[in-house]
Amino acid sequence: MSRVAQFLFRRKGGKGWHWTDIVTWIWLIGGLFIMFGPAIWLVGSSFKTPAALAEFPPTILPYVTQKVTVEGIDKPLDLYEVTLEGGKTVRLAELRRIGVVSQMIDPSNPGEIIKVNIAQRKPVREMTFASENYAEPFTHFDFVRYLWNSVFVTVVATLITLIVNSMAAFALSKYEFRGRTVAMLLILATLMVPLSVIMVPLYSIVSALGLFNSLWGVILPTVATPTGVFILRQYMLTIPDELIDAARMDKASEWQIYWRIILPLTAPALAVLAIFSVVWRWNDFLWPLIVLSRKELYTLQVGLSIYSGELNVQWHFILAMTVVTMIPVVLVFIFLQRFITTGIAGTGLK
């Protein structure tokens, strides 16, 4: 126990390799594989043709059996490397297979059929990136629509979130008025009513407002987030009141104080909220699933889940669309990860 403790809580490294260092590195390297591995596997798979996807055991890279077209035969044939009886290897195309015997022809000499035991042949593999996995959803499916719906929801919801929440945070941090505590408590109480608790009545309200099957029905219920009000208010409390007094003496209206003094000074917190809001809205699933029932209104998340739940799952498209869905979030991760992690560590929000 104490050695485990020593490993976990020793703070300085130093003299040589302790076994605890080894465990640390196993944990870290293992973490690296477990955390990134699945996503990378998915990305790799998304470039495979349906045939390659159906293979077992699968290959790491998107290899496919090379095809040749042989004169006189309509469809392209698989190309194999065949070890002949004399030990010589030649490349032959497989015409058909009967039991353990494969009927093959030489592409350069299509007239003659050679019978080969299947143990004697090995497919000729080449790496192919099945870019049609990506191209086709963009042209033949509603995928572009979903993409656009997701972008619309994300951008509009984030903008409204920023404006509405920063105004509320301004009122709650810089004004004394009756009912301020009540307003704060109400907003705080929202933390206790997550979507899963109120989805039935919320659905009826959204329908009553005519927002069922409308992207606005997805956007509006999400924009008054209590967390948003809280981080902004917290930040605004650190802005000295004297600045506002100074602006009032400078003949600024309250609206000008809000957008010319408070907003620019809250920029760091607004940026954090904006990033969070983008990730939240991009990833939203349950609520869009409830509100949107018409195919052309689906967001990416809903579209993906519906497609993947179909009886005959077209994995090659699903994988490619999943990768596209991941891209914005991965970009956020790569460029803004440090920003987000300090944001979370500072405020404990997600």
Binding site: F36, W41, W282, Q301, T325, V329, I340
Partner: peptide, 30 residues
Amino acid sequence: AVFFFPVLLSPVVVGLIWKWILQRQGLLNF
């Protein structure tokens, strides 16, 4: 950052990634 990476992924993407790994011809079985 390594351990934080999946946090940002959407639940749908998370579900699909693992569905793909755990399926019959998936990475785990491999």
